[in-house]
Design a protein around this nucleic acid. Structure first.
Length: 794
RNA sequence: GGGCGUUUAGCUCAGUGGUAGAGCGCACCCUUGACAUGGGUGAGGCCAAAGGUUCGAUCCCUUUAACGCCCACCA
């Protein structure tokens, strides 16, 4: 055995596991046994986005889930960890667009003719200027909006599948013991079929409606976004006061004036009581017009003049006002197009973008005396909606054929809305959150749930099956079905129709071979980062309950985000990104795993630094060297069939270490049960290092101590087992080097035996320990062995 | 506006109703036959502030402050 643990061997160890077949629950030794009740444990891996490389966030969930999986496998559960990848619709589109932009800088990729013509057009003297112009041109050359959709889709598929493979290898580096034979991708044919069937079911149940609705539009990415995909930022913009005939309106968006269909006041507002229901004559920049005044409770009397110009095509609140007054006022009038430019209705301002139009329109208004610049509030602060990816200002627009899922309406076939199903499951405790506080956060969010727009206008995704649309589903619509979709897809079946299977399982008990869905659904744990609680977890609960009538998982375990050593968010631009694969190559996967578990509480954000990984590596090495000590003494792994020695023959130190181990293991298992990974590992860490190695092994070096080698082997073996889920590689290697039978990955963790608990002897030994400590304070160079023997003589 | 979290050793953070912990860093010592990626010793904290419950509070309750996050959003 080498003096230091060599993590270069990790890939070999992983290979050994993989060919053993034990990642696959079908091949686990206990899977075939007919005796007793089979226990199943399953986790569906949150599909990492197949659009880039693994980052520390991935490393966290791989580590935590692998710990749970390996632990349960060693407890004798038939354990499935189903890996997957997500096509990640919009996220991938954004990444891919950037890639195109970059490639576009390579001028050889642009059609020659086009380049030539454009270059002629821009006859520039200044070289620098020309360069910039070229860059702009080049970007256009590979703009996704100019590439045929089908071609683009194929290119993106290739791109994504490549990333998927890359990612898979990275998961292996970290030791993920998932069943690759069951791997699923959200664009697999069978998954898409299931997604379509869910869509149909929702439609039949009256939970889907297609409508002309106002949506959040990103003018850069050319797609609508859900409410969750929008971030707000405080901005200071001028608040203008504009005359509408005898009335005056305060607004930050004068450019939408061409889309006004009414003015609204509060029904109780005495100032404008006489105007309600009347049509007034107004002067606009485009001439004389008429507009109706209506009353609506949404209007705030305190704000501005207490009058709102109603522009339903470009404002969410206005849209709602229009819906309430459809019969009295004209339909919405769109004046801004999909690219954020003014359209025909804007007359001379057509073609201008919003910012330019606003400026020119204000100027014209001032000229006409419609806008008093003196009144303008230049310090007005308000929140502006932005695309969460590119920070482009969101343009609320009305889009046709948008699909929405009703969240708060009962389905025809059931008595609870999607939202209420989920709320009830959580309130009843069928689903539990770890840490607990997320229960409240979850319920609080569910309370105000709005309908979910599942239409997206990007090319990348699952096409919505309707003749009249090119749209794809919101990626989260398919992800929301992941737990049951994957397990149904891996279930053996001749029929292409997946749904009847669910009912079949219920009715037909004579099916002898249980399918994956029957065995593993509901899954045991959903472990993921808290930041996708609403995007994903909540929607999985709703659709899972809706389709299968069962919760998709029993426990939800949420971990925090990974930050750098100073607690700052990692980002490429800051240059503080720590790459888990790079670190794994440098210090080993076990070190990464330990560094991500120790010193952090579940659900809290955590800091990671190379220093921390280094110290974790030291811990790994310590364990390695404890194993090396056994090897040096010619001691081997304690065989499963061996019986423990008669307690009467044990020495004091033996009884002490057994008792301590008993307590430690008990604590460790209790912590793991509650997903307190850090405390579980810390307990074991402290035990193996500061009790087992520092004391038990040191004392054992003295023959006077009469330490039984069986006990040393036994405790070490059991420690290696319980540590294996945390540090799979080094423990497996030790298992092999010390003649463990078979692979450690499926070794069974022994149940606690109360006979191994010796209270009195433990207290006695602690006293001796204390004496030695006191002596060492005076004589620090003396070894424990020597002091122990001196004490023995007295 | 509503909700959540954090505040503990120089730094990063664990933790518990009963004399404060880890890792890293720092000072000094030790190459002892598993391990210098090690071992030993030590310095360093009125556990954010105030009040309450309790025999006893860093931990439970109330209030406050600072910082951070999430949700909603009035033109």
């Amino acid at each position: 055995m080498e003096k230091n643990y060599n993590h270069q061997l990790e890939s070999q160890i992983y290979h050994k596991w993989e060919i053993s077949g034990f990642f696959n629950p079908d091949y686990l030794p206990n899977a075939k046994s007919k005796k007793g009740l089979k226990k199943y444990f399953s986790i569906i891996m949150p599909p990492p986005n197949a659009n880039g490389s693994l980052h520390m966030g991935h490393a966290v969930f791989i580590t935590l889930q692998d710990i749970l999986i390996r632990y349960h496998r060693m407890l004798g559960y038939i354990t499935l960890w189903l890996p997957g990848a997500d096509h990640a619709g919009f996220e991938t589109q954004v990444v891919f667009d950037k890639k195109l932009e970059k490639e576009g800088r390579n001028r050889f990729k642009i059609p020659k003719e086009k380049l030539y013509q454009e270059m002629l057009k821009f006859t520039l003297n200044n070289k620098e200027k020309m360069k910039n112009q070229l860059k702009i041109l080049e970007k256009e050359g590979r703009n996704r909006f100019k590439i045929p959709k089908e071609k683009l889709y194929q290119e993106m598929l290739k791109f994504t599948l490549n990333n998927k493979e890359k990612m898979k290898n990275q998961l292996k580096i970290l030791g993920a013991s998932c069943d690759w034979s069951r791997e699923k991708f959200t664009l697999d044919k069978d998954i898409i079929d299931i997604v379509y069937q869910t869509f149909e079911k929702l439609k039949k149940d009256g939970l889907i409606y297609k409508g002309e609705r106002i949506i959040n539009w990103c003018t850069k990415h050319q797609t609508s976004l859900s409410d969750l995909e929008i971030k707000y930022e405080e901005r200071t913009d001028p608040l203008y006061y504009i005359k509408y005939g005898p009335l005056e309106v305060a607004t930050v968006r004068p450019e939408t004036t061409f889309g006004d269909i009414a003015l609204a006041v509060h029904p109780d507002d005495k100032r404008y009581k006489n105007f309600i229901g009347k049509i007034i004559d107004i002067e606009t920049v485009l001439g004389k017009k008429q507009i109706k005044v209506i009353s609506d409770k949404a209007v705030n009397q305190e704000f501005g003049t207490g009058i709102v110009k109603v522009t339903p095509a470009h404002d969410l609140v206005d849209f709602e006002i229009w819906q309430r007054h459809k019969n009295e006022i004209p339909p919405p009038r769109q004046v801004i197009d999909n690219y954020g430019k003014m359209n025909d209705l804007a007359g001379p301002y057509k073609g201008l973008n919003v910012k330019e139009a606003r400026k020119k329109i204000c100027e014209a208004m001032i000229k006409k005396g419609l806008l008093d610049p003196q009144k303008t509030d230049n310090q007005y602060k308000h929140n502006v909606a932005l695309c969460y990816k590119c920070k482009t200002i969101i343009e609320p627009l009305i889009l046709k054929n948008q699909y929405f899922i009703k969240m708060t309406q009962k389905p025809k076939s059931g008595s609870l809305s999607l939202r209420d199903m989920a709320i009830q499951a959580v309130q009843k405790g069928e689903i539990k959150f770890y840490p607990k506080r997320f229960t409240k956060i979850f319920l609080n969010w569910m309370k105000d749930l709005k309908d979910w727009n599942i239409s997206r206008q990007i090319p990348w995704g699952i096409k919505i099956p309707e003749a009249d649309t090119d749209d794809v589903f919101d990626t989260w619509f398919s992800s929301a079905q992941w737990p049951f979709a994957t397990l149904l897809a891996t279930s053996q079946s001749k029929t292409k129709n997946f749904y009847p299977k669910i009912d079949l399982f219920k009715k037909n008990k004579q099916i002898k071979i249980l399918s994956d869905f029957e065995k593993f659904y509901p899954t045991s744990v959903m472990e993921t980062a808290w930041d996708i609680l609403f995007f994903w977890v909540a929607r999985m609960i709703m659709l899972g309950l809706y389709v299968t009538k069962k919760v998709p998982f029993k426990d939800i375990v949420l971990h925090g985000l990974v930050r750098d050593a100073k607690g700052q968010k990692m980002s490429k631009s800051k240059g503080n990104v720590i790459d888990p694969i790079e670190m794994a190559n440098k210090y080993g996967a076990d070190a990464i795993r330990v560094s991500l578990v120790l010193g952090t509480a579940l659900g809290n954000d955590q800091s990671i630094s190379e220093e921390k990984i280094k110290s974790a590596r030291n811990f790994v090495n310590k364990i390695w060297n404890i194993g090396r000590f056994l090897k040096y003494k010619n001691l081997t792994i304690f065989n499963e069939k061996e019986n423990l020695i008669d307690p009467d023959k044990l020495s004091l130190a033996d009884k002490w270490i057994l008792t301590l181990f008993y307590k430690t293991l008990k604590d460790c298992q209790k912590y793991l049960k509650n997903y307190k990974f850090n405390q579980a590992l810390e307990k074991m860490n402290n035990f193996i290092w500061h009790e087992f190695a520092d004391w038990y092994i040191e004392i054992s070096k003295s023959e006077k101590a009469n330490v039984r080698s069986e006990i040393l082997r036994y405790v070490f073996t059991e420690v290696i087992k319980i540590l294996h889920p945390f540090l799979p590689f080094v423990t497996e290697k030790l298992w092999e080097d010390l003649n463990g039978q078979g692979l450690l990955i499926i070794a069974q963790i022994r149940k606690l035996d109360k006979k191994l608990y010796f209270k009195r002897e433990t207290a006695q030994f602690e006293k001796i320990k204390q004496k030695i400590i006191d002596i060492r304070k005076k004589e620090p160079t003396k070894s424990i062995k020597v002091i122990f023997e001196e004490l023995n003589k007295l």
